[in-house]
């Protein structure tokens, strides 16, 4: 299956290009779209943080705000990817029923297109962090690995959900609801450590442990918790393989069941 995907890597590239192109074409904001959602999310995060600070009688510190910004980007990537990929097969039913090619490129292309957005927003963030002189550390080298885990995890879930939505259209609505409230169950606006002994429960969510690892590496400038990073890596690879297998097994049924 991987080999066939590699054979069609040009198609994957073209579809990713198509998704990016369509998103930015005839859009007044153009590339601002890539940072629009993160900005709104960060604003919401700061508001919540401020509220919590008032309640607990503390001040909000710069590091807290930075931490939210750093975690919001991967989170937006995650939910956007799922939102687009869950629709990717049904939205391209023409291609699914008419032409033969490995269908996995459709959800993967929507995820890559979102990854492109993440890169744009990431560049903006890097510029901002340089301006406020956050500084660098050797632990930044962890970031690519963590992002790879995030990408694998997202791809695995995206493959599963896109195939699921093809058979059952309400998968999409379930996903929307889960994603809408997912932010409360994931340490984006807050840090898992706030919950003391309960923090492990939050980190069981692989996205949670991924976000915390990024936070450690970028903001706290320390080694990510290797146990939880390892856990996230294990989950990501497992979910990716499971998603790929499930997708591959169900692929022959796509055209007649869409």
């Amino acid at each position: 299956m991987i080999r066939e995907l590699l054979k069609y890597k040009d198609l994957l590239f073209m579809l990713t290009f198509r998704d990016i192109r369509i998103r930015y074409k005839q859009a007044a904001m153009g590339f601002l779209w890539a940072i629009f959602m993160p900005i709104v999310a960060v604003a919401a995060g700061i508001l919540i943080k401020k509220a919590m600070a008032v309640v607990s009688g503390q001040y909000i510190d710069m590091l807290g705000v930075v931490s939210i910004s750093v975690k919001v980007l991967p989170w937006t990537f995650f939910i956007n990817s799922l939102k687009f990929s869950v629709q990717s097969l049904v939205g391209n039913s023409n291609l699914v029923t008419k032409i033969y090619f490995p269908k996995a490129v459709l959800p993967l292309a929507s995820i890559f297109a979102c990854f492109f957005d993440l890169c744009i927003a990431g560049i903006v963030l890097v510029v901002l962090l340089t301006i406020i002189k956050l500084g660098v550390s050797i632990h930044l080298l962890w970031v690519p690995l963590i992002l790879l885990f995030l990408l694998l995890f997202t791809a695995g879930v995206g493959l599963l959900l896109s195939a699921g939505n093809l058979f059952f259209r309400d998968v999409r609505y379930v996903v929307e609801v889960v994603l809408m409230f997912g932010i409360f169950f994931t340490p984006v606006f807050y840090s898992a450590s706030h919950f003391g002994n309960w923090s492990h429960l939050l980190l069981l969510n692989p996205v949670g442990s991924i976000l915390e690892s990024i936070n450690s590496a970028v903001v706290l400038k320390q080694m990510p918790d290797l146990f939880w990073l390892g856990y996230a890596g294990f989950c990501s690879v497992t979910v990716f393989i499971a998603g790929l297998n499930f997708f591959h097994k169900k692929e022959p049924l796509f055209a007649e069941n869409i």
Binding site: L11, F13, L15, F17, R21, K25, Q26, N94, F101
Partner: peptide, 28 residues
């Protein structure tokens, strides 16, 4: 069969040639 299935209306002819070509299994 259905030679225009891969077209996307928002893209230009040039982009669609590449897109449709890769969908049909050609290399860029």
């Amino acid at each position: 069969i259905e030679v225009t299935a891969g077209f996307h209306p928002e893209l230009t002819g040039r982009e669609n040639v590449y897109l449709n070509g890769t969908i049909l299994g050609m290399k860029r």
